[in-house]
Amino acid sequence: MPVQPITGMLRRGLVLDLSIAFGLGTSFAYLYWYGYHVPATRQRDLFYAKLEDQRASAQS
């Protein structure tokens, strides 16, 4: 009795692996962007705005 070929396993595995990779990649990108980058940029911008206000008031 011959063994039947396994078909579709590679395609299913590839689709699953790519789906997981893109899903996790997108999730971690959003986590980095909104969890670290945006707050750090906001804090930096507030620091430089405060510094500019101090320089402007010192010159007046």
Rank of each mutant, 00 (worst) to 15 (best):
Y34C: 00
R12A: 13
A58K: 05
R42T: 15
Q43V: 03
D45Y: 05
S27T: 14
L31P: 00
G8I: 01
I6S: 12
R11H: 04
A58W: 07
V38A: 04
R11M: 08
V15W: 08
Q4G: 02
T26F: 04
M1Y: 09
M1A: 12
Q43I: 04
P39Y: 02
L46A: 08
S27E: 10
I20F: 07
A21K: 06
G23D: 06
H37M: 09
A40I: 04
Y36I: 11
S57C: 01
S57K: 05
L51R: 15
S19L: 15
F47P: 00
L46I: 02
S60K: 14
Q4S: 13
T26H: 01
F22L: 15
S27M: 13
A58V: 04
Q54D: 12
V38F: 07
D53R: 14
S60C: 02
R12E: 08
V3C: 01
L10W: 07
Q59L: 08
A58P: 03
F22R: 05
I6V: 15
Y30I: 10
S19I: 05
Y48H: 05
Y34D: 14
R42D: 10
S57A: 12
G35N: 07
E52A: 15
F47N: 09
E52W: 03
Y30S: 06
L24W: 11
A21W: 04
F28L: 15
Y34K: 08
L10R: 12
R44S: 08
Q43L: 06
P5C: 03
T7R: 14
V3F: 05
T26C: 09
Q54K: 05
A40H: 13
T41G: 00
V38Q: 14
G23V: 06
S19M: 13
Q59I: 03
Y48P: 03
I6G: 03
Q59D: 01
G8F: 05
T7C: 03
L51K: 13
F22G: 07
A40E: 13
A21L: 12
Y30M: 08
V15A: 12
S19E: 12
D45C: 03
L10V: 14
V3G: 02
S60I: 10
P39E: 02
D45R: 10
Q43N: 06
Y32W: 11
P5E: 11
P2S: 06
W33L: 15
A29C: 10
M9R: 12
Q54M: 07
I6H: 09
I6M: 11
A29M: 12
G8T: 02
F47D: 03
V38L: 06
R42P: 00
G8K: 01
S19F: 13
F47M: 09
L14P: 02
M1F: 09
L16C: 03
K50P: 01
Y36K: 09
T41R: 11
R44V: 00
L14Y: 07
